[in-house]
Amino acid sequence: MTELNGNQTGYGLPRLGEPAPDFEAVTTQGTLRLSDFKGSWLILFSHPADFTPVCTTEFVTFTEIYPELKKRNVQLLGLSIDSVYSHIGWIRNIEEKLGVKVPFPIIADLNKEVATKYGMIMPGESKTETSRCVFFIDPDGKLRAMIYYPLTTGRNMQEILRVVDALQTTDKHQVATPANWKPGDKVIVPAPNTASMAEQRVNDKSLEVIDWYLSKKVL
């Protein structure tokens, strides 16, 4: 049980829009700190355990999307409650058996310090393994999105890329993205927050105005 944010105890969750919990951790690429990633986006993700089937398929597919993530200035950082020697053995095994070289670091969180800070352990599922959590941390170190999957469900890498694209599009254009949005689709213009702005909005011919509170545009 760890104290979080000064007033929470237990397996607390970090909050969106707040600074991501800081850490210094041993990884397969040496000791890394969250601040080492400042200036780039970071996807911090956890997996239940090394040498397990679903996790292995995920590491192969995380590696597949790694070039696309790099194009978007995103780094990957894995984590599980295993030793660095286990991680090294596993990624060497993945390379040997599946021909895939894992290019990103993996935290060896044997003392569960990072896992506890990020609420990666779901005791109802497992008290000794991290669930399949994904944290999207922006270049300023702010937590921008979180996805949690259970132990039995492998993650959808296209959804992870889509969330990155959506967050970066929001930052660049100050817009929101509708359900099932993908790059190239119309985006949502923030709703007006005064009556006069609402009146202007319904007459704005530059937008696709469905109603004053729901307007889209092409970027």
């Binding site: 200036g39 780039s40 780094q75």
Partner: peptide, 21 residues
Amino acid sequence: LEEVASITDIPLYLVRATARD
């Protein structure tokens, strides 16, 4: 360190960590 990362093509996070070492 930003220039070092650009010149060496080593990710900046690794350049920072190695420089710290």
